[in-house]
């Protein structure tokens, strides 16, 4: 399901119909995403769904095979230098040169970005508690992530791209990183684009989200929209059933015997009518959590017994 192509005039990131294959395997299929200025955009997806591939397209690390990618209205491959100088990027692997010291790393990175703020960088470094004389290879995982985030933030980029910023980190470091991200956002409407599979983080921090499953965008829009669109119904049947045929707007079915739990997306009318025909009665309805929506979308629709 694609996002409605909203006014892409002021969009910081604009992806339209992007498809990509690695060999014969399709990694992204007809992905369209628009990120307006000042938005915190969360990209959800399980491992291997295509999040990193999409991010690499945004950075110009992958050339566009089919579709179009525009960042700040520019082509990240053709005008790579200009686009990259306005982006702060934290990679999933956090590959900072292991031989550099922290102060050397800062000095080195500062030369590439005209907007580098030395005072701000120093303040961030002190906040993250990073020693200047330590070599990157002696940093722990959490400190490495913080160092990477420091390099990405210090030049006050217009767009901050984070690929799984919290992966492999303990909760304390995760908090620090989230705080730093929030601080960025609060500053004069800078845009943040991050991918994560930690749902409660995404839920806290994002304005809009998109969910990618097997290379396709299956959910998109603002968080409140998505939650309003989904409803979880508990249906009770008079007689035990082994399976339920696939019905309209059903995202996920789960259950056995007489009670079944159905996750519905969109209009409920047709679904309730079909259920009535089957003899089922809705006994409970509730708003699902993002976690449940995510898992339901990921495991896919279908009438399956548990």
């Amino acid at each position: 399901m694609n996002l409605p192509t909203s006014s892409s005039a002021g969009a910081v990131i604009s992806v339209a119909g992007l498809s990509r294959r690695f060999g014969t395997k399709p990694v992204l299929e007809d992905v369209s995403i628009h990120v307006p200025r000042g938005c915190v955009f969360g990209l959800l997806g399980e491992n291997g769904a295509g999040k990193s591939t999409l991010i690499k397209h945004l950075l110009g690390l992958l050339r566009v095979e089919a579709g179009a990618v525009r960042v700040f209205g520019l082509d990240p491959v053709a005008q790579g230098v200009e686009v990259l100088s306005r982006i702060g990027y934290l990679s999933e692997a956090r590959d900072l040169p292991s031989w550099m010291r922290v102060d050397e790393l800062l000095r080195y990175s500062a030369a590439f970005y005209p907007g580098w703020d030395h005072v701000y960088a120093d303040e961030l470094r002190r906040q993250f508690e990073l020693e200047t004389k330590v070599r990157v290879r002696h940093l722990s995982q959490g400190q490495l992530a913080k160092a990477g985030l420091l390099v990405a933030l210090a030049h006050r980029p217009e767009l901050l791209i984070l690929d799984e910023p919290s992966s492999g980190l303990d909760p304390v470091v995760r908090r620090d990183i989230l705080e730093a991200i929030i601080r960025t956002v609060a500053d004069e409407g800078r845009t943040v684009f991050f991918s994560s599979h930690l749902l409660d983080e995404v839920e806290r921090v994002s304005d809009q989200i998109a969910m990618i499953h097997r290379g396709r965008v299956v959910l998109g829009g603002t968080l409140s929209d998505i939650k309003e669109r989904h409803v979880c119904l508990v249906v009770r049947f008079p007689a035990p059933r082994l399976e339920i045929p696939s019905l309209e707007n059903v995202v996920h079915l789960q259950g056995a015997d007489r009670e079944w739990s159905i996750m519905c997306q969109g209009a409920r009318g047709p679904l309730e009518a079909s259920l009535a025909k089957l003899g089922g009665e809705v006994v409970e309805e509730r708003v699902p959590t993002l976690d449940e929506i995510f898992v339901a979308q990921a495991t896919g629709a279908g009438g399956m017994a548990r």
Partner: peptide, 14 residues
């Protein structure tokens, strides 16, 4: 402030 509370709670300022 909106910003301060957002940072404290670690949620989106919006």
């Amino acid at each position: 402030t909106i910003r301060g509370l957002a940072e404290q709670l670690r949620v989106n300022p919006n």
